[in-house]
């Protein structure tokens, strides 16, 4: 059970949060222009790597805000947390 430092509320127990999958996958602005393959790439393809993963998290039972997290999936160390729209910090 992680301790997550919500950028709006501070440190909270993981049970207040919901994981939202890989981060920085932008919804295409013009979906109709895309081929089936390109759309499928956006829709279905997600990384599941052992190591540094960029993720979205939601403080579902708190401020309800979404934010980004950089987590090492091999030992669950949270490397960084930053707000939506911000550039990922270098780690």
């Amino acid at each position: 059970m992680f301790v997550i430092n919500c950028p709006y509320c501070g440190e909270r127990d993981q049970q207040e949060f919901k994981a939202g999958g890989e981060a920085h996958i932008e919804r295409p602005k013009q979906p109709t222009e895309l081929s089936d393959d390109e759309w499928a790439e956006y829709l279905f393809m997600r990384k599941n790597i052992k190591g540094i993963q960029y993720e979205r998290w939601n403080h579902a039972h708190g401020c309800r805000k979404w934010f980004n997290m950089i987590r090492d999936t091999s030992n669950d160390e949270i490397k960084a947390i930053y707000k939506m729209g911000e550039k990922p910090p270098s780690i």
């Binding site: 939202g20 932008e26 919804r27 979205r56 939601n58 579902a60 309800r64 979404w66 939506m84």
Partner: peptide, 10 residues
Amino acid sequence: GKLEDYLQTE
């Protein structure tokens, strides 16, 4: 939750 997600992120 889903609507908030789109509003905040997309």
